[in-house]
Design a protein around this nucleic acid. Structure first.
Lengths: 208, 208
DNA sequence: TGTACATCAGTGAACGCGCGTTCACTGATGTAC
DNA sequence: TGTACATCAGTGAACGCGCGTTCACTGATGTAC
């Protein structure tokens, strides 16, 4: 399924190439859309370049023009995943007062991970991504920035300057990330009434 | 690399089939050993049945006699992973006093994950495992039991009876698990001096 | 103690599969003049 | 405004690959008598 929550895209994506047209017109986006669909349907292991091309209505050689190779396409999909996560976090941040921002972040993060399991998994799978890709790195950093800003209550960061997050921020992020992963991997049943809330209530509180 | 910490095996594993012998004599174990080696060398994506058979000095059809199919072999490898994790946790538990058990568990868990990254990843990769396999389930539960016992300071569990762990236990586990995963996935640099300790110091403390 | 025979644990060749990528190509687009 | 032409974004057939699994088979083991 294409993103149905917090969609970044403005125009309705055109998945398949318009009939009778030689040029697609929006193949790059269409391939990323198709990739997300495949992930949602078949999981992270079920992805293939050829299948993405098929869904976009295009020959298996076409993606190379936009992404070089599979790794390039996967990296673009993961990048968009981080952008969508950052958007979701930003939205949650703006909807609540400062005192409950961390809780809102946490709930949003976990919800994103659970709803988009395979995408979330891919986003972190370094081995299959080009982790030196600047867009990928920037998108990941941006998502973490939103989290950190909400967790600490201030915007400590000079954009793009590397810095060392406070241990309490990393601990909070670890807890959230770990809970999401354990739930995705079947070790925890997040549908147990009240469970998610009571676990997230134990978040280490970074100083404001 | 075969387990060099907390090894469960008694005899030195024989990887390759003894020359001139038709029967291997310990093929099951040898295939699991080989599988762990492949994971350590090539990562979770680099595993293949044929390569494991090759390393065990055996034809590609041989593993089927012991494991049915690839999934069976992978599940056996993951099962042993959980057994080794449980052993490591038990050992750590016994080495320290009750008040520092949780910290010792945490450090051991993270160390295991970082040292055996690909194995740790496989252990949780439900899609490629037979998650209904009783041995796999039992090994996973056993590892969690050790953690829970150390975290709560008491052995609340009737063996094999399903039960609902306290939120504080799940939160502690989530934090540890998340920290390990983020470090494995390159989001956190665990070699930063003092970082691991200061993050783990923020563990939610379950009631004793 | 020796022999017959069922069972078990291997062989190794072959199969079909879908994959990512390559290649020479062509249709469409857009820019220079 | 029209034309030439470079560039871009596609085609589709083909390649080679390693994979997991199947198959008919055989060597080794161990048990019954």
């Amino acid at each position: 399924m294409r993103p149905n929550v917090n969609a970044v895209k403005i125009k309705e994506p055109r998945l398949a190439k318009p009939r009778g047209r030689y040029h697609h017109g929006g193949l790059r986006e269409a391939l990323i859309d198709a990739g997300e669909d495949i992930l949602a349907e078949r999981g992270a292991e079920g992805f293939s370049l050829r299948e993405a091309a098929r869904r976009a209505g295009v020959s298996p050689a076409a993606p190379a023009h936009h992404f070089g190779d599979v790794r390039g396409l996967l990296t673009a999909i993961a990048t968009r995943g981080f952008e969508e996560l950052a958007n979701a976090l930003s939205k949650a941040e703006q909807e609540v007062g400062p005192e409950s921002r961390l809780a809102a972040m946490a709930a949003t993060y976990v919800e994103f991970a659970l709803q988009r399991g395979a995408l979330f998994t891919l986003m972190w799978r370094r081995q299959t991504l080009d982790i030196a890709n600047p867009d990928y790195l920037a998108a990941g950093r941006a998502a973490f920035n939103v989290f950190e800003r909400a967790a600490t209550g201030r915007d400590v960061r000079v954009p793009d300057a590397p810095h060392t997050p406070a241990p309490a921020v990393l601990a909070a992020w670890s807890l959230i990330h770990g809970y999401a992963r354990l739930a995705l991997d079947g070790a925890i049943d997040p549908s147990t009434p009240g469970l998610t809330q009571s676990v997230l209530a134990l978040l280490p509180k970074p100083a404001g």
